[in-house]
């Protein structure tokens, strides 16, 4: 049976956001304002790396949260735990009301079709065009071909690549490739987008454009978790900042700043 976040939610408690144009489960976002919950999460990588040690936080639907910290502080681990590339050693992680701490292998694809992921190295399929890369995320979810033909060009337009859908990744600049990967993350209208150092391979101007794109996506209501150690970006956002230090939450501040060390 197909499991979706909606099936584990309570009744609506807030009105729909106008521009969402929900795709099935998407309108579930406002049923429960808490989107991501980390409860006392620890993560050990064998043999004895303690990547996270007792991390707790909650992220509400529609928030734009930056997760910062020095290299090795556990930021990527938090991201991986959210889309179940790793499982916590102890503690609990909820996406909406879905406890994914011990998610079954066969449920992982279902979770991932509801979370968009963006990476520093773009992770595009090299033998597929920009259009096909974006379409792929819908194809694996069993979306109809007609819907794919309608939605993909639209999303490519949103990220500013209306003309370049036919190009292969190697025919695109770094910034353009990242836009394709954001389009892919966006195309199934996920409640959450997790971006791990999405600007790490981009120059400052391109990086700012990408971050702007994320804020626009956030304006549509999508929860954004942005992992970055770029101080200018964090300080320019004026949004909530969770700072990690040695696998612990060192600070968690609304309209936060990048903390030094």
């Amino acid at each position: 049976m197909r499991r979706s976040l909606r099936s584990v939610r309570g009744p609506p408690s807030a009105p729909p956001v106008e521009s969402l144009a929900p795709l099935g489960w998407f309108d579930a976002a406002w049923y429960n304002p808490i989107m991501i919950t980390f409860k006392n999460v620890t993560k050990e990588y064998p043999p004895k790396t303690h990547a996270l040690a007792g991390v707790s936080f909650r992220i509400e639907a529609g928030e734009f949260v930056s997760i910062t910290g020095q290299s090795g502080s556990g930021k990527s681990t938090v991201a991986k735990l959210i889309f179940a590339e790793e499982k916590p050693t102890s503690g609990h992680i909820h996406i909406g009301d879905w406890d994914i701490s011990n998610i079954r292998h066969s449920d992982i694809p279902i979770l991932r079709r509801q979370i968009g992921v963006v990476f520093q190295d773009f992770k595009l399929l090299p033998k597929k065009t920009a259009f096909e890369n974006v379409a792929f995320a819908l194809e694996v979810a069993g979306e109809s071909s007609k819907r794919i033909r309608d939605v993909v060009p639209h999303v490519l337009k949103i990220v500013g690549l209306g003309e370049k859908g036919g190009r292969y990744p190697r025919q695109l600049s770094g910034g353009e490739q990242q836009r394709v990967s954001i389009a892919r993350a966006l195309v199934h209208r996920p409640k959450i987008i997790v971006a791990d150092e999405p600007t790490g391979n981009l120059d400052a101007i391109t990086a700012r454009e990408i971050i702007e794109l994320f804020t626009r996506i956030n304006d549509f209501g999508t929860t954004i978790v942005l992992v970055t150690h770029d101080r200018d970006i964090v300080n320019g956002l004026h949004r909530r900042v969770i700072t990690l230090r040695e696998g612990k939450v060192a600070s968690d501040a609304e309209k936060g700043k990048y903390l030094l060390a």
């Binding site: 991932r112 090299p126 033998k127 792929f136 979810a141």
Partner: peptide, 12 residues
């Protein structure tokens, strides 16, 4: 590529 497919929600 297979890793990427899984990341965007392809089942096995």
């Amino acid at each position: 590529e297979i890793g990427i497919m899984k990341l965007v929600g392809a089942n096995d």
